[in-house]
Design a binder for these strands. Structure first.
Lengths: 218, 218
DNA sequence: GGAAAAGTTCTTGTATACAAGTTCTTATGG
DNA sequence: CCATAAGAACTTGTATACAAGAACTTTTCC
């Protein structure tokens, strides 16, 4: 029944990422075991894993809570991503397979439609992730993308709180298009600055979300 | 008794890293629970963690073995380190605190002595790690150093198998000294190439270790 | 009334019994 | 003799009982 555990983990991650389970919420082993009709032993395994990925904080012999968003983690992950993606995209600009270009274009087309149709922020951001993940994959660095995902709990929630205005989404899309253009044209020298700005862009627009502070780690 | 678990983890990690527990060795929960005089429940917690960090592979409902060295992981971690360190050292070359310079120099002095005294490979590599960790710390990126450490099980063992000749150690030391010189002189432009070579250097000398192949993941 | 201490009721941590699955051995039939 | 199937002896996975610790409530004493 490994799949049952996986199911529960997926479920809890979703609830935490979409802030249904708010930072600070007490996580009780017995409550969870009743909810999912499973004993405490596998629940403990699940909590260990969620803790390792930053979703919850375990206080030994006291209890666990949904982790508060740690701005330090967010900043470090942004730095990591921006540094790696600069390098990766530079490499792609020297040599990218045609099939890869096609996949990237397809994603950008979908993002355009997303904006036209006024789809949800989540749908757009799903495509944003797909675009960046594709870059890693094309460069043979999916391994590193997966590592980053394991430390993403804080970053994703942060981004969610900073819900972007529609004009911001357009900006993101335009930058994606520009990145792709630079890759195609082999304009290696211009990539560094653009990617640097692109990864950090959403950090600059976090002002209009209410009740922000109570979710942040002090 | 969280410290008891930590002790056991530390012990097992050591035995795996120094190849006392060879890749492919079967890890039995009951055997470990007898050896450490503790029940299977905490042992399972320990195995989960060792698995997450790549030290062992768990085959559900079958058993666990000490992981074979995965060359793919090694290559990816080297890429990650080299990319990050290029960036970090460039930043340090623009602005490094005096105290940091002193610490780095102290480490290099110890490495010199290490070579003079014909100390063990392990002692030298401990100082190598200390040097690089210090660079991360000075740049405010200890967070990222710690992430890398979590995926180091393959890299460390690989490096160990590639036991370096003494002249190679001298080369490493000289490169460290050069890195430090570039940082001090602010020669940002020269750093990239040097660090790139430095991180990848040990990859080029893996030819003279016997029985290498049986430890490698196919 | 307030403070400190004892006791109750939570929490998680550990040990163990049992269930379920895998592998190895043995036996049986062709 | 070999192949296949049945069963025994392992493995890990789960449930549960119990231990130990933390927090909260109540009581007792000043």
């Amino acid at each position: 029944m490994a799949s049952k555990k996986e199911e529960i983990i997926k479920q809890l991650k979703e609830e935490i990422l979409c802030m249904e389970l708010k930072p600070g919420t007490i996580i009780s082993e017995t409550t969870l075991s009743e909810r999912f009709q499973i004993s405490r032993t596998p629940i403990r395994d699940i909590l260990k894993q969620l803790s390792a990925e930053g979703y919850i904080d375990i206080y030994p012999q006291k209890g666990s809570i949904v982790s508060y968003i740690d701005l330090e983690s967010v900043e470090q992950i942004i730095y990591l991503r921006s540094t790696l993606e600069k390098e990766i995209i530079k490499e792609l600009s020297l040599n990218i397979p045609l099939k890869g270009l096609h996949e990237l274009k397809t994603i950008l087309t979908k993002q355009e439609e997303c904006i036209k149709n006024h789809d949800s922020f989540n749908d757009f951001m799903y495509l944003d992730d797909a675009f960046h993940k594709n870059l890693f994959t094309l460069a043979g660095r999916l391994f590193l993308w997966d590592i980053i995902q394991q430390f993403n709990a804080h970053y994703i929630r942060y981004r969610k709180l900073n819900m972007l205005k529609e004009e911001k989404l357009t900006e993101i899309l335009e930058e994606h298009q520009l990145i792709l253009k630079y890759i195609i044209d082999g304009k290696t020298d211009k990539i560094e600055q653009l990617v640097h700005h692109h990864i950090r862009a959403d950090v600059n627009s976090f002002y209009f979300q209410e009740n922000f502070d109570e979710y942040i780690k002090k």
